[in-house]
Nucleic acid binder design. Structure first.
Lengths: 293, 293
DNA sequence: ACTTATAGATGAGTTTAAATCATCTATACT
DNA sequence: AGTATAGATGATTTAAACTCATCTATAAGT
């Protein structure tokens, strides 16, 4: 007997009827099955009697108002139960992936960009919940979107979502420094990860015609800390424009008449195009918008 | 998250859509899936896009007119494929049981009753095919209906389908023997299985007021052979009324003015009520009718 | 490069299957 | 015995599934 014919035969029975049967077999009564499937007991009854006549087999013994599986029913129930369980658990996993985005990134980007606009994203996408984590922890887990900070040369072009520029910022309202005369303290960052390019301070000085001899550097291992310190002490920080955009807008930081300088640093999402959930796609579009205005 | 909610979620996706997806994933194009499921490609397309939006996930990459599974699609396809395969193979097994009856019984009943009326049964039940086997062979295989010949005392009352009577029969057209005068040769049976009650010849002689001193017995180990021998030689056979009914009707055998005698033998189907396929039920009703007129 | 054929997407309309409602039967529990 | 419960049955309604017509993009052939 050929394969195709078998398919046809099997398809004469409706999958919904099988689901009804599976549920009734598992729960023991049509009533409970109906509740489970949000149907009426009548629907279950119809499904099962339809199934029985298509298969030419009795699946339940009817003892008045009580039912019990026949031997054949038991065998079929075993199979449907296993089969649907496999399918259901895969569905559940896929749906979980579809209903949430899990993002992991640096503390700085998380604290200064993602977390502040998390609410906004969830407002705009009510069916998607957003989870943010930082640190190296659960990186390899599937469905998690990592936003990495690194050298443009190690990232695929198509994976880059933001090329980083740097500039000097100060607390809002402070008097602009006179760059050439007085001694200046400047907060900056020394990445924990030594393979990353340093913040392009030399290039920035050059582009702004400064020699930097009067500048004293104070280094933090995360940009976040330098920025916070600058705000707290009315100081100056040399940091990425990405992280400061929101603080500028909300008048917590200000910039001066200096020109920003491009760097070799960027934010990128490895294998960006491999994220096939729609929530991931929407998140990626959204974050790229946010970062690039 | 509670169990009930999960069910609900999973049920928001239709099983038919999942089947369409499973088929498309396996065959590689919507067109082939459509052929397999006897649908139009449009239906497959609708199903899959519906599935994708309910799950919030892309299951296929669309590269123009070519499709390929996404990672998520692949994972789901694995599950649906496994799940449906399990269900389908069980269905196939059950349907096979529903579409045929397999009967095993004694050579005599098979040859003289079952096989001659096999065609009639299949005419009356076009959706059921009937298979007949004899011998001890495949008895324990599931779905096979054994019709046993044995002592009424070892069979459950409800399992008995025919209580056996015995009488003497002769070839059609032969002159009735004069019971008391001339010497008579009578074919009869000595069961191979010694635990079975012998054919009730003594009781038959008594009920018919004969002493049997002029009767010479010739024994076969199956009733079938005695009957055939009687027909071939214009002889007489003492045998069960069940086996001869058809031969009487078709004027190949005749009976005389002797009275039949009841025996302790019967045909029975062990656990008759445990056969839950409708084909088995129909067969059992039919055979009980046949045997008891 | 231009045509032609093919696979799939999309939206509207149709058909069929599934679910419900109303009614009835048989059983279990007071 | 009387009542409540589980399921069966048949008619009707509702919703899902399927198709048709149309459109787009791509692959293949000339």
């Amino acid at each position: 007997m050929n394969q195709l014919l078998i398919w046809r035969l099997s398809l004469q029975v409706s999958l919904q009827a099988l689901k009804a049967f599976e549920s009734a077999a598992r729960r023991g009564t049509f009533k409970l099955a109906a509740e489970e499937l949000s149907l009426t007991p009548t629907a279950i009854s119809h499904h099962i009697s339809n199934l029985e006549s298509r298969l030419n087999v009795n699946l339940f013994h009817r003892l008045g108002r009580r039912i019990s599986l026949t031997g054949t029913g038991l065998r079929l129930a075993k199979a449907t139960s296993d089969g649907f369980r496999i399918i259901d658990s895969a569905l559940e996993e896929v749906m979980k992936a579809g209903s949430a985005v899990r993002v992991t990134t640096t503390s700085s980007l998380a604290a200064m960009v993602l977390i502040p606009s998390q609410h906004e994203f969830e407002q705009a996408n009510p069916d998607i919940s957003m989870e943010i984590s930082t640190g190296e922890s659960v990186d390899s887990q599937s469905y998690i979107i990592p936003i990495r900070f690194g050298d443009v040369s190690v990232a695929e072009d198509s994976d880059v979502i933001r090329s980083e520029s740097f500039n000097v910022f100060g607390a809002y309202g402070m008097t602009p420094p006179s760059w050439s005369n007085e001694p200046i303290t400047l907060f900056t960052t020394e990445w924990k990860n030594k393979s990353l390019p340093d913040p392009p301070l030399a290039a920035w000085l050059e582009i702004n015609g400064l020699d930097g001899s009067n500048i004293k550097l104070k280094k933090f291992d995360q940009e976040l800390f330098g920025i916070q310190q600058a705000m707290a002490e009315n100081g100056l920080v040399f940091c990425s424009t990405t992280l400061t955009k929101r603080l500028l807008k909300s008048s917590l930081l200000q910039q001066f008449d200096t020109r920003p300088v491009k760097s070799d640093l960027c934010y990128y999402v490895p294998n960006k195009d491999s994220f096939e959930t729609r929530s991931a796609a929407r998140f990626l579009n959204w974050i790229e918008d946010i970062l690039n205005q």
